[in-house]
Design a protein around this nucleic acid. Structure first.
Ligand code: DTP
Ligand code: MN
Length: 993
DNA sequence: ACCTTAAA
DNA sequence: GTTAAGGTC
């Protein structure tokens, strides 16, 4: 059954958000600025020639009345050196749009901050099956909010085609044709939906309506702004023929370049001329078939149901520094932001992250840019904080809600002191100076997260010696928030500030029994604990008191979060009288284990908790506060100052995050120069809610597998279920803004079999659809290449070695990557950095990397501009043993020809194709003619020979720079001109087949 | 757990 | 500045 798929993309999204927020007319040229660059330009400004990434000056010159709006900056200053950008405003705006889409189809996948895919197949079907066939599509007004001005008039199916904002490729649609009728119905629904978005929120959007995601996406970009484009099956061949291959999703990067370079294809039509067998041979048995089909407009990827993100990250890049104070400053700000976002998410989505990540960009021992990430399970003391927040024990933000009995709505994250450089008034409103209260002065007279009046130390957080360790216990405080103190049954905390080393040994000793325990309700929990201990154990290794190896004394010691984490662990490991392990941080040992088991985060779990869990009923039955905000009533900037003023939102969560990040960074990097840090949270799982089931399974991840007729109870992975559960209803209620009777989703949920399928497991599962990515094959082959060439074997980095010491293969990769980057700007920057870094790193001369033959390749190669791009095929080793013949096993995507055959994948792709049965209604999408393939193959052979001849001539004529290198030249590859050589290499190896 | 690619 | 997802060890 051919589907009706829609891709919706907001027009000039950030610009539109600002336009609405500031109440500016649509014809006012406006651009959104992030530091020195423009990241969104509205259509009025585009008409004047202003483009994204254009320099401010140039934009102003082209369009003098251009209104520039800078994105929010948090951190108490609008200066780049002190503040960081926050995209929260656009996240919130995006979150306001999704519910509208959702009204039109619950099969709604958020694809980016301003894009979504919808599967309208079922809606269309339902519409067309009514008798008599209705003349209009459902309006799906928001039943609660739709005021007269917001109400949309029903659009009749008969009239859509004549609208100026509806474009039908190879139209008009023919109502006597089955699939055309579907498209017509789909187009009508979409027209209605776009109007709803505009009426309710003031944003315009464009859409593509097509049989699959690939084509829908392609179509949505064809006519903008505020237009929609319908792809009829008959238009597909013509559409793809001249369509730039690299604009197909997933082919915009290295893969596409490789395809382009290797096979000389510019358009999808070019690629169509290549037989599938050749594509498979060249690209592997995953990518080959995928590309083969994609260039024909064939694409089976299902629309997923994800509407909320699966991870959150806060990042800051800054100019080179090796001052730990600088890093602390950023880490602190980032932690505050992330904590605020997590807290918001806990309240709104009732889920929690299981993993924290720290990212940073530094340099390796050879001064090459080097990015690192470290992650760890969310530590128990943070889990505890989250559970407390979830249980409503943390004081809420200043109560604005007059909602009577209802608890206050979760507001958007209160970020640390927001300013907007271009709107001083806002800045004042945000209470910029308040930001200073929590500010980490670089001169160190005040510790991060500290307060002068801080009376005590929050157990479990930031304990250490000396001046840097004053933690924010007092200020976290607010009545009832001192987490552990609040719990009367809490073990005595006499040991909490004990000597870290002693704790370490204690902890280690006590660990053994726990590690031996096995299955049981608490098994998962123990695994988490155990993982956490191993992390902290490793963190704790090394100097931590007195004067350490770096000569740092206790005086300037940084907070030692993990030391206190150790204290926590110590208490965790206590046993009760019966010798059972005691876990004070969870009321019920089984609860968390149940949470972890998919689908079981239900009533049982909730009931088992000793603290009061939020009831699911009615909790969220209210409009999102952001809707007001979008009306201009409440902006994130308003009320921001409260965060730092009250200390509330810089709270324990932020502090714990900060401590985590800092300690890892510190341990890993000492005073290594860096240019970027980021903190992130991921692996979200449900928090227990009475009477509710998983939210993550429905809205965070996964495709809905059994869309039609899957009413059966095939809960093989335990997620979701065959019935809509309480949490789901709640979510739907919230998304739809309150009542939802016969409208929208509720109606379809009422239909048997629809949208009730279970959700596929995501974690650890292979990518079920879409193309594989090249990296792994590449990496694997490189490893193999190393082995074959007798190079040093790749070693996993031991966790606490200096992170600069990386595996040779990785390090070698970076060389190329650093140069490939985003273009010349980055290259130059790298090179500059390299000089400065040399200074910061002591200016010692570089050790020869291997056999004394290396030079600093950042410098070495920066000159050879163009060649740097697409350097995938260049072997990443300086080892002279690498001959010109060997490299295939080291060469990027091309190396995937060595990849193992995977019958599995082939089978699955075939299965998908059959299952989709696209040909039934769209012959254009049916399987490919075998005869034609044979003809193509023959043609291709001829072309190959011809191309070989041409190339031979060319190389004999002397390709520039590479003239002397023959295939067996035995020359050192790194010394050749890559461009000429690369081309040769690729083509010749290609032609061998 | 860490690294890579791709996208808006 | 973010997010998703794949792969290897
Ligand atoms: N490279 C980038 N850096 C930072 N933000 C970006 C970047 N690309 C896009 N964005 C943000 C700003 C955009 O408003 C938003 C949506 O992107 P996108 O849909 O590509 O453009 P757009 O919505 O501004 O215009 P269009 O009307 O062409 O869709 O994402
Ligand atoms: Mn857009």
């Amino acid at each position: 059954m051919a589907r009706v798929i829609v891709h919706v993309d907001l027009d000039a999204f950030y610009a539109a958000v600002e336009q609405v927020r500031l109440g500016l007319p649509l014809d006012q040229p406006l651009a959104v600025q992030q530091w020195e660059g423009l990241i969104a330009v509205n259509y009025a400004a585009r008409a004047k020639g202003v483009t994204r990434f254009m320099a401010i000056a140039e934009a102003k010159q082209k369009c003098p009345d251009l209104r520039l709006v800078h994105v929010e900056v948090i951190g108490g200053s609008s200066k780049r050196e002190e503040g960081k950008v926050s995209l929260e405003r656009y996240r919130q705006a995006s979150a306001n749009i999704l519910p509208i889409f959702h009204r039109f189809s619950p099969l709604c996948e958020k694809a980016s901050i301003d894009e979504a895919y919808l599967d309208l197949t079922a809606q269309v079907e339902a519409l067309l099956n009514q008798s008599p066939e209705p003349e209009t599509a459902p309006v799906y007004d928001n039943p609660e909010t739709a005021s007269a001005s917001e109400k949309s008039e029903p659009i009749s199916m008969a009239s859509v085609q004549s609208r100026s904002d509806v474009i039908v490729l190879d139209g008009p649609l023919d109502p006597s044709n089955e699939y055309d009728r579907r498209l017509l119905a789909g187009a009508t629904i979409v027209a209605q939906m776009r109007e709803a978005v505009f009426h309710e929120l003031g944003y315009t959007c464009s859409a593509g309506i097509a049989p699959n995601k690939l084509l829908a996406k392609l179509a949505s970009a064809m006519n903008k702004p505020y237009k929609q484009t319908v792809v009829t099956p008959r238009a597909i061949p013509g559409l793809m023929k001249d369509f730039p291959m690299r604009k197909i999703r997933n082919l915009g990067g290295k893969m596409g370049k490789e395809l382009c370079d290797t096979l000389g294809c510019e358009t999808a039509g070019d690629v169509q001329k290549i037989p599938e067998a050749v594509l498979i041979e060249k690209l592997g048995d995953k990518m080959g078939p995928w590309v083969f089909r994609a260039v024909r407009g064939i694409h089976d990827e299902p629309v997923q149901t994800r509407q909320i993100s699966k991870s959150m990250l806060a990042a800051k890049s800054y100019s080179l520094t090796n001052s730990i104070e600088d890093v602390r400053h950023w880490l602190r700000l980032l932690s505050m932001e992330l904590a605020a976002r997590i807290e918001y998410d806990v309240k709104l989505n009732k889920r929690r992250p299981k993993t924290f990540h720290l990212y940073y960009r530094g340099f390796d021992s050879r001064r090459r840019i080097q990015e690192h990430s470290k992650s760890c399970p969310v530590p128990p003391h943070i889990l505890q904080l989250i559970l407390q927040i979830h249980a409503g024990k943390t004081p809420k933000s200043p109560a604005k809600s007059q909602g009577g009995d209802l608890p206050p709505a979760p507001g958007p994250p209160q970020l640390p002191s927001v300013t907007s450089p271009h709107f001083p008034s806002e800045r004042a409103a945000s209470g910029g100076e308040v930001g200073a209260s929590g500010r980490d002065p670089r001169n160190g007279e005040e510790a991060p997260f500290s307060r002068k009046d801080s009376g005590g130390t929050v157990p479990g957080v930031a304990v250490g010696g000396g001046g840097g360790d004053v933690s924010a216990g007092g200020r976290m405080g607010g009545p009832g928030t001192s987490l552990l103190a609040e719990r009367g049954s809490e073990p005595p905390n006499g040991r909490r500030n004990a000597d870290p080393t002693a704790e370490l040994s204690n902890g280690t000793a006590a660990e053994a029994p726990l590690l031996q325990s096995n299955a049981g309700p608490a098994y998962q929990l123990e695994r988490e604990e155990s993982a956490w201990r191993s992390i902290t154990g490793h963190i704790r290794r090394g100097p931590c008191r007195g004067s350490d190896a770096d000569g740092r004394s206790d005086q300037d010691a940084l907070p030692r979060p993990f030391a206190s984490g150790q204290a926590e662990r110590e208490s965790l490991l206590r046993r009760d009288s019966s010798g059972q392990l005691k876990r004070p941080f969870l009321a019920h040992p089984g609860v968390d284990g149940q949470l972890e088991r998919e689908g079981l985060a239900g009533p049982e779990a909730g009931a088992a908790l000793e603290y009061h869990l939020p009831e699911s009923s009615g909790q969220l039955e209210r409009k999102l506060p952001e809707t007001e905000w979008a009306d201009g009533g409440q902006s994130i900037a308003d009320g921001i100052g409260a965060a730092l003023a009250s200390g509330e939102h810089a709270g324990p969560l932020a502090e714990a995050l900060y401590s985590f990040g800092l300690s890892i960074f510190e341990k890993a990097e000492h005073n290594m120069p860096s240019t970027r840090v980021a903190v992130a949270a991921g692996d979200f799982v449900d928090l227990p809610v009475k009477g509710a089931h998983s939210i993550t399974s429905f809205f965070q991840a996964g495709e809905v597998r059994g869309v039609a007729g899957s009413g059966g109870a095939d809960g093989d992975n335990g997620k979701g279920g065959e019935r809509i559960n309480e949490r789901e209803k709640e979510r739907v209620t919230r998304l739809s803004g309150g009542k939802q009777k016969s409208h929208g989703i509720a109606r379809f949920f009422g239909q048997k079999g629809f949208a009730t399928g279970h959700v596929a497991a995501q974690s650890g599962a292979g990518r079920a659809h879409g193309p594989p990515q090249g990296s792994a094959v590449e990496t694997g082959e490189r490893a193999r290449g190393n082995e074959l060439l007798g190079l040093e074997k790749s070693q996993p980095e031991s966790p606490d070695v200096h992170v600069g010491a990386v595996r040779k293969t990785r390090a070698a990769n970076r060389i190329v990557e650093g140069l490939e980057g985003n273009g010349t700007e980055k290259k130059v920057r790298d090179r500059v950095a390299s000089d400065q870094v040399a200074q910061l790193m002591g200016n010692r001369s570089l050790e020869p990397e291997q056999e004394g033959k290396e030079v600093d390749r950042n410098l070495d190669k920066a000159g050879s501009d163009k060649t740097a791009c697409g350097e995938q095929a260049e072997p990443r080793t300086s080892n002279s043993a690498v001959s010109a013949d060997a490299p295939e096993m080291l060469t990027g995507l091309q190396s995937s020809v060595f990849g193992k055959l995977s019958a599995n994948v082939a089978d699955r792709l075939e299965h998908d194709r059959r299952k989709s049965d696209a040909g039934a209604l769209c012959p254009e999408l049916s399987a490919v003619d075998v005869r034609q393939q044979q003809r193509l193959m023959a043609d291709f052979e001829r072309q190959k020979r011809f191309a070989a001849l041409v190339k031979k001539r060319e190389s004999e004529a002397g390709g520039r720079g590479g003239a002397s290198h023959g295939k067996k030249g035995g020359q050192k590859r790194k010394e050749r001109s890559q461009e000429g050589a690369e081309g040769q290499q690729r083509i010749s190896s290609f032609l061998k087949h």
